[in-house]
Design a protein around this nucleic acid. Sequence first.
DNA 1: ATAAGATAGTTTCATATGTAACTAATATTG
DNA 2: CAATATTAGTTACATATGAAACTATCTTAT
Lengths: 155, 155
Amino acid sequence: MPEKTHPAPLRLATFLPFRLSVLSNAVSQRIAELYDREFGLSIWQWRVMAVTADTPGISATEIGQRTQMDKVAVSRAVAGLIEVGYLERRPSTDDARRSNLVLTPAGIGIYELIVPLALAEEAQLVSALSEKEQAELARLMGKLAKAASPERDLW
Amino acid sequence: MPEKTHPAPLRLATFLPFRLSVLSNAVSQRIAELYDREFGLSIWQWRVMAVTADTPGISATEIGQRTQMDKVAVSRAVAGLIEVGYLERRPSTDDARRSNLVLTPAGIGIYELIVPLALAEEAQLVSALSEKEQAELARLMGKLAKAASPERDLW
DNA sequence: ATAAGATAGTTTCATATGTAACTAATATTG
DNA sequence: CAATATTAGTTACATATGAAACTATCTTAT
């Protein structure tokens, strides 16, 4: 009499999508708390500030591409940042539908306060890994990203 | 005259919390779509099923610990699964507050359909990596998890 | 030049999610 | 053996989020 066949086991704790999700949430939560507690910013607002600092005059659509946020999320984050005076909307001369977004001086000030804190958080996080391991992790994540989303580049 | 000092640069695309979040979302979305499209299950419901299959008679609180879901999310997922007949609540004899949760035969059937599909998704995802790389990734993620959340074990 | 389509961005609406308040039961303390 | 604190789980409420509809502008094709 043949053995009863067992289905392949699935333990959540070793299932990559689960592990990734839990790890990402733990990391995001730590860092989101920092932005919110110290500066009243959501993680989305922070992302918008980061790419706008990097590329002044960027459009909302471009922000969406660079941050992987959808256009509604970008719209809301931008509105919030303008509300608190960290971002300014300049009408584009050549296309009246888009605007060129720039940080205000206040926005730049906040941005420059946040950057070292964010980098310090990251540094503390990866301090458990050697330089070599950090590079390896980045490389493996890149491969995974390509496998998970071959259509568009994730970053 | 001293040079103007530049703040440390922060490029979102190389910032680990951002990369982790984007990667995790891409992976989760693929797999959530599978559960939902084929079986009408949310990712939370799937997680509850997975740990309940693994540990029949588990309590809601334990499910929360094992899945990193908060108790409200567990409560809702459990309610939904009972609603569709995949899960059954058995009152605990020794503590009237808790119930022992078990998959119904229908729930087990669905679970056994999903497992190979989920594992196949995972396999496809990690197929871009060698065995060695997969093990290394798991190891590095483990270290990171400990650094991100030293208080409690993430998995 | 004009109609049909595409694009940038916002608003609306329905659903998901988290926090806090709540109920019921158990555990602890004096 | 009360009185109080803790725990398991649910409910209510307020906010976040995403999909689809919408407005305004620009592009393309005739």
